[in-house]
Amino acid sequence: MKPRWAGLLLLIAVIGVLALLPMLVNNYWLRIATGALMWAGLACSWNILGGYAGYINFGHSAFFGLGAYVTALLMGDKLAWPFFATVPAGMVVTALFAIIIGAPTLRLRGAYFAIATWAFAEVLIQFASVMDFTGGIGGIGLPPFLDERFFYFAMFAAAALTYLITWALFERSRFGLKVKALRDHELAAEAMGINTSLVKLQTFVLSAVTASVFGAIFAYWVTFINPKSVFGGDITDQMVVMVLLGGLGSLWGPALGGVGLFVVNRLIWMYWGDTAFYIAILGAAIVLVVLFMPNGIASLFSRRAAKSGAVLDKAVGKLVGDDQGGPN
């Protein structure tokens, strides 16, 4: 069987299993599956900018948090919007923030961009912590809706759409070619007529908006959020590690990394009662992957991706200011 057909059949099988999962497992495992789908989707949204465009964003949780807070505020007693109306509202607000933040910061490169985005998320934490309308440091509650199947399918739909959009835009369209070209050599991409400033901003906004959708569903799912729980830097850290483990700049890498790490995290918690051990496993896994599988787990299934760690090299090069894509 040709690999392409085998891949398609595998994809159909995975979708089939995921669609039937609520009928096969209890609520505990369904919650784990919901979380796994959320992290797979979030890792994909981070990978849109980090993997495809080569811009390492250390403040991605800001957009997850914006989606969560918009939903929480609009569903509160005063406004009482229905959940499904809050999701597009969160996307619009997030897109506006992404444009305002992205326009100046995407002129920066490497570590400077990473620091600027990290600072943006920190600013939002502080802002949400001191403002009354966000509930301050104490957080904000949402109307409870205790239907695990609803949240499972909501996360499933959001993750599936995120991957579908990523596949269509970055693997099958000329927009993806432009984004990957600017990742590899920004000056050469400009010389090919590509407006790199605009393409970067479009990619940044798409990456941000997809994260906001998961934030919205998450807020409704957990029924209570505070600044740390949705803007916290550890959320971004998780995404970065998931993508590095799965495969930076690959379509399915973030899914493998996201699901794998979250399930390991939950299993460790289940058997040992806390997740301190998880951090040690995480560290060891990162070291092993960077040393022996620089393009992540996904490279095991792709001959071309397995040949070198060039995407990771490129990203790290940009981060340390070693790869400016500048003139010769």
Binding site: L177, K178, L187, A188, M192, G193, K314
Partner: peptide, 25 residues
């Protein structure tokens, strides 16, 4: 259109993708 003194490749893209990227805009 121009070339560079040291070839400015889109390193992680295939040869065909390099050519297609040049025509993308």
């Amino acid at each position: 259109a121009r070339t560079f003194q040291i070839p400015a490749m889109f390193d992680n893209m295939s040869v065909t993708e390099n050519l297609l990227a040049a025509a993308a805009e």
